[in-house]
Every structure is written in C-alpha cells, then in structure tokens.
C-alpha cells in the first residue's frame, strides 16, 4: 500500500495511534485535533522525536527537525503528512 492513497482523516488517525504508542500514558485521553501536544499534554523532546520517528517509519515521510513545529497538534500533523504524502 502506498501512503499517498491515505486521506487526511486516515493520517490523523495514524498520527494518534503513533502518539499513543510512544506515549501509552496518553492512551485514555481524548485529544482534540487542535490541541497543542507539547503545551496541553506535556510531550517532551523525546516523546516528540519518538512520535516523528514512528510517523517516518509508518509513512516513509521525511520530517526534518526544522519542521517539528509544524506538527504541533494532531490536526496540524495530519495536514503536514497529507501534503508530504501527496508530494511524495
């Protein structure tokens, strides 16, 4: 399956799934798509890096360090991944 066939909604679901894998203590939370993950859920640098890594592995998307701020929320991540997978 190529990742460029995935809808934005599917990508947002993948982003959430990857997040709860690297931060299982957030599994019971209901995370609004626009919530700032670092501010509202106390994601630290390691959590963020692990999440980015999980998305990279799952979708094959290259996410350089300077783009991390563009994945500040689940919704923003879905937008970013949607663009990146279509472009790829």
């Amino acid at each position: 399956m190529t990742s460029n066939s995935l809808s934005r909604e599917a990508l947002q679901a993948i982003a959430l799934e990857a997040l709860t894998q690297v931060a299982p203590d957030l599994a019971e939370e209901t995370i609004p798509p626009d919530a700032d993950l670092r501010e509202a859920y106390d994601l630290d640098s390691m959590d963020l890096l692990n999440w980015i890594n999980a998305l990279h592995k799952r979708l094959g998307v290259d996410i350089p360090e300077q783009d991390y701020p563009r994945l500040a929320s689940l919704g923003a991540a879905a937008d970013y991944l949607h663009r990146a997978t279509r472009a790829g």
């Binding site: 640098s45 390691m46 890096l49 980015i52 890594n53 990279h56 592995k57 290259d62 360090e65």
Partner: peptide
Amino acid sequence: RNAARPPGQRLLMG
C-alpha cells in the same frame, strides 16, 4: 548532524 539522519538516529541535546 541530525539533518543528515532519519529521525530514529537523531540525537537530543540532553
């Protein structure tokens, strides 16, 4: 250093 590597091989300042 991190720019040349995939996320799984990047380092944190810590």
